[in-house]
Design a protein around this nucleic acid. Structure first.
Length: 376
RNA sequence: CCGAGGGUGGCAGAGUGGUCAAUUGCAACAGACUGUAAAUCUGUCGGGUCUUCCCUACGGGGGUUCGAAUCCCUCUCCUCGGACCA
């Protein structure tokens, strides 16, 4: 695969690359791309993680990168998820979550055996060097910047937090350096951590990131779009100048189970959720169904979407590109109901392998255990 | 450790001895209306054989009282000050 092909693969469906020049430089040299994406183990895996993030992971795999998924159990603990119980979190991480990620990759046509998982606990165990790196990152950053960075935990800037939460950002940055990651991948919500990583990169002494000549380099950061939740935004229409602060309420969130779809949801469940989704006719901005169509369905080569509808509404139609579909939707030639039906059917099809995976008794048990845990 | 203020239904937040199963807002659910959703309107929203009846419930336990979410004691947790800091 040549450079252009790799670049194209890495670039597609991303919102930003910091920086593209750095990426091209890396690709030009014959050094391996060490990729990493980290996840908190905070509950069931929804499509943002399972399909959106993992399809990007597959792109990296296809581009020949060394791909790794970091199971951030310590971060989960710090962020009070799953009851803040370390042992439980770890169990869910190495059981349910791992299986879920493998299942997700299967849905995308990737080889589940190729994902390398790293558990935070394992990485940090008896590891002075790691903690020294955390301190070094901290020494090169200010308190106010760490405070601002708590948004990477899905928390409001300026919100009340216990002190441990301020250790989360430098840990996340240290994760990058300590593992020698030269390409950090995440959703847009994680950019603050990655920007810190880039800002401190050239000052690091303990675990600096080095190029083949031994000079310090900044990790490349690839950020992707966060897919929207299915609910109605708290204010509609969303004022442009408030978009940034409202974003955390717009993105898909597993804490509102009816506004997201989980990778192992049953077909009926998927249909129900999508039927109830906010979807103003003709509106292409911040329309969750259109957003999903673009990022979950038309996110790969050769994707298409067939609409089945009665003659009186125009009869069946097949779209081969998102652009034409969006145009029809904007012109009200494609009705929300028809699009919803098609999207639901398509997602049901895409997620089939995940449902199968979790139909296996041992995997089902993991899921049930997690559900039980969350209900407490 | 000391002092102050608090812990009320999914959340927010009233209520300070009976008329409280507990005002109100949000969320949720159902219905009406639209070829979806939203908006709007209506209803439900602790449980029970759903009843002017019972049970469970206002952080836990105990007490005062004919009667307590409301008063007293105690425990516990949270928040905010302060003290300690060899």
């Amino acid at each position: 695969m040549d450079l252009q092909q790799k670049l194209k693969l890495i670039r597609r469906n991303t919102e930003e690359i910091l920086t593209e020049d750095d990426l091209i430089n890396l690709l030009k040299k014959d050094v391996p791309i060490k990729h990493y994406i980290g996840f908190e183990i905070s509950g069931k895996i929804h499509l943002g993680t399972g399909l959106a993030s993992m399809s990007k992971v597959k792109d990296f795999m296809d581009a020949g990168a060394e791909v790794s998924v970091f199971l951030a159990d310590w971060h989960t603990w710090i962020n009070d998820k799953l009851g803040g119980d370390r042992e439980k979190i770890k169990q869910v991480a190495v059981n349910y979550f791992k299986e879920g990620m493998r299942a997700s990759l299967k849905c995308l046509g990737g080889d589940p055996e190729k994902i390398k998982f790293i558990l935070g606990t394992d990485l940090y165990h008896n590891n002075d060097e790691y903690w020294a790196t955390v301190i070094e990152v901290s020494k090169n950053t200010t308190l106010s910047r760490m405070k601002r960075s708590i948004t990477i935990m899905g928390r409001k800037e300026g919100g009340e937090v216990d002190f441990a939460k301020l250790i989360y950002p430098p840990m996340q940055v240290a994760d990058v350096f300590f593992q020698g990651v030269n390409l950090a991948h995440a959703g847009m919500d994680q950019r603050k951590a990655h920007v810190i990583a880039r800002d401190v990169a050239l000052k690091m002494k303990i675990c600096p990131l080095l190029n083949e000549k031994g000079s310090k380099i900044k990790p490349i950061a690839v950020h992707q779009h966060l897919i929207l939740g299915l609910g109605k935004p708290p204010v509609w229409p969303v004022p442009k100048d408030q978009l940034q602060e409202l974003w955390s309420t717009l993105k898909m969130s597993k804490s509102k189970p009816d506004t997201c779809v989980f990778i192992h949801d049953e077909p009926e469940e998927i249909k129900r959720k999508i039927k109830n989704a906010f979807c103003p006719e003709g509106e292409i901005e911040l329309n969750p169904i259109l957003d999903w169509t673009k990022h979950l369905i038309f996110s790969r080569d050769y994707s298409s979407l067939s609409i089945t509808r009665p003659e009186k509404f125009g009869g069946d139609v097949k779209y081969d590109s998102y652009e034409t579909l969006e145009k029809d939707f904007a012109n009200k030639k494609l009705h929300p109901v028809d699009l919803k039906n098609a999207v639901a059917e398509e997602l049901i099809k895409i997620l089939e392998p995940a449902r199968e995976h979790f139909a296996k008794p041992e995997n089902r048990k993991m899921l049930e255990k997690l559900e039980e845990m969350m209900n407490k």
